[in-house]
Amino acid sequence: MFATAGNLSVRSEQKHSYWITASGKHKGELKNNDFVEIDISSQTLLSSTDGNKPSAETSIHHSIYNHLPNAGSVLHVHTLESNLLNFQLTPEEGYRLIPIPPVEMIKAFGIWTERPNLQMAVFYNYGEVKKIAETISLFLDKHPDYPLPFVLVEEHGPTVWGKTITEANRHLEAVAFLFQVMAHQK
């Protein structure tokens, strides 16, 4: 992760809240007090130190935790390739399902089907992050069996999740590779 770009979170052991990186923190220098605790049901701040505020993209993490009870960690990053991928989405459509190439790396998502026909959810990059989060929530309501552990905000970055931090990180590495392939195909 570059400088302050992106945000990381993990669901609490009690499952009713999650810890997310505070706004503006350099991700290569994080300490325990660089995280704030957010309640999942009320979306309120439960714990913060040193006057830290939640990440500007907390609402995206909240959408994932609220809709996917098995998500134990959510990671959002801004990679070069994810910033270059443009599918000409419009604000009116909000999101679109885009085919992804059946590269070997998708096995990192637990998908072992030979040459699967998969589509990733790509969201319009609204200027207001809460609008992106609302659109992700609508998508997850409409597609409860979405098979991939990530979504992409167009010309911005992916949000991945997993049962654990380790699993979410594996998904992130696979997504980064997938986007490199897709960027080279354009």
Score class of each variant (00 low, 15 high):
Phe2Ser: 09
Leu8His: 09
Leu8Ala: 00
Val10Asp: 12
Glu13Asp: 12
Lys15Cys: 13
Ile20Pro: 06
His26Gly: 10
Glu37Gly: 03
Leu45Asn: 03
Thr49Arg: 11
Gly51Ala: 10
Gly51Leu: 04
Lys53Thr: 15
Ala56Asp: 10
Ile60Val: 05
Ile60Gly: 03
Ile64Leu: 06
Ile64Phe: 11
Asn66Pro: 07
Ala71Cys: 03
Leu75Thr: 02
His76Arg: 06
His78Tyr: 13
His78Gln: 15
Leu80Met: 08
Ser82Trp: 04
Leu85Trp: 08
Phe87Val: 04
Glu93Trp: 06
Glu93Val: 09
Pro99Gln: 01
Pro99Phe: 02
Ile100Leu: 06
Pro101Gln: 02
Pro102Leu: 00
Met105Pro: 00
Met105Gly: 03
Ile111Phe: 01
Trp112Phe: 08
Met120Thr: 07
Met120Gln: 12
Ala121Thr: 04
Val129Glu: 15
Ile132Gln: 05
Ile136Leu: 10
Ser137Asn: 10
Leu138Val: 05
Phe139His: 08
His143Leu: 06
His143Gly: 07
Pro144Lys: 01
Pro147Gly: 02
Pro147Trp: 09
Phe150Asn: 01
Leu152Ser: 05
Glu154Val: 15
Gly157Asn: 08
Thr159Leu: 14
Lys163Ser: 11
Thr166Ser: 12
Glu167Trp: 01
Arg170Val: 10
His171Asn: 11
Leu172Thr: 08
Ala174Met: 02
Ala174Lys: 01
Phe177Arg: 08
Met182Thr: 00
Ala183Gly: 02
Lys186Val: 09
